[in-house]
Nucleic acid binder design. Structure first.
Lengths: 134, 134, 134, 134
DNA sequence: TTTT
DNA sequence: TTTT
């Protein structure tokens, strides 16, 4: 029963966020974040490895992400990991792992007044667990 | 360039860990960890949602995980997320997201003397980036 | 403006928690947590170093801590650091650093049914910022 | 024995870092970091609360902090908490809590080429536990 | 003041 | 595939 599922990333937003609404009217915003890691291949030149995260925000946080984030911005994202699975046309299982955000915070000074974007609580899919459009 | 990619989980080991060796002789241990979340569907009875993580440990940490972990144990795992992709037989992209561990710590008292399992540094794939068997 | 202040500890509760109430009736529970670190003094035998944390919980989380925690239990605590200062009788500044908890989770199986203790949000001093009794 | 002692902060450096050397020649750099929290006093205007952290870095990380950080820069700091105590002239116990950093990462673009500052391992006082000048 |  |  004792459980922790926490992800913390700092990286650059890969594209402008996209906001949609569930049938029940809950806003959901998704965007990607790239994190980079430098691998010291001793000998050769250091190699860069990029890891992409799919981030999903719900409710008020979804609206703030949609309003304040944009392609290229540096952000801090905190949340939990969630893997969804489905069957492909070929009968194979497919998996997609996403970060369900409970805090998103721009770290650069670009654009509009931003301030801190944060949900008090995990304003997430819990609210509408079987109501997710994508 | 500024980047953070951190995962922290506390959960139960889903099965006995499996250790393999890369062609170059590096030990790699993998195991699954389940985290549970209780969703308060206001009205009906609370629903349980289980999230499964695939954890991979390298080198000395791999050996310690193999030696001390076992199905059912409660563990703390810290690491970074890594998604690998490949093309299925049907031409579709497949993805698998794993936690590359840099710290694993049993939290229960079961079994042998355990102590703390921790790599000093991220003793991971960096060491043998193009040497991964699975 | 962009800010993160996060502490995560796993350790043993040093004594039974103590719950008090602010003049305005808000419950506050405090307890200590010990974390241990093993220092490898290369050569001599490894040395143990204990770090003590003062943890403070508010509102519903305060009540849960008071009810379920006890001396010796293993807990996970997440929160933010807060340092309070005051002037000693001698005119010197004194400081006390505490962890204001927003999540507390027992990790052992001792005692009563425990389940997960967690505030949805940071149910902390924000609620009664100028209302703190100790 | 199972223990976690982790602090993660994002904030602004309060002053230029200061590097010293232990008698044994180990570099130690210290600097302060301010994190801000906005308290919504429902009713009145939101209040700002600043929390100051004393950060200490050792060895190679100390040199990098000394070289790349400066007053005002936005940084991510990860480390562990350590409280030192001593007796005041008045016989009272005094306490100072510090963050012993194992990772420091500038988040803004100011100044020189910065890149990522990170120790592979916790390059900390372990190395010279009884060798600390301040 | 905890724990192994 | 775990745990309570």
């Amino acid at each position: 029963m004792a459980s922790l599922n926490k992800v913390m990333i700092i990286g650059n937003v890969g594209g402008d966020p996209e906001m949609r609404f569930t049938p029940a009217g809950h806003p959901v915003t998704s965007f990607s974040v790239a994190t980079n890691r430098t691998i010291n291949t001793q000998g050769a030149e250091p190699k860069k490895e990029t890891e992409w995260f799919n981030v999903v925000a719900w409710e008020k946080l979804a609206e703030q992400c949609n309003q304040f984030l944009a392609k290229g911005r540096l952000v801090y994202v905190e949340g939990r990991l969630q893997t969804r699975s489905w069957d492909g046309q070929d009968g194979q299982k497919h998996y997609k792992t996403e970060v369900i955000a409970n805090r998103v915070m721009p770290l650069d000074k670009r654009q509009t007044a931003v301030g801190e974007i944060a949900t008090g609580a995990e304003a997430t899919g819990e609210i509408s667990p079987d109501d997710i459009p994508f």
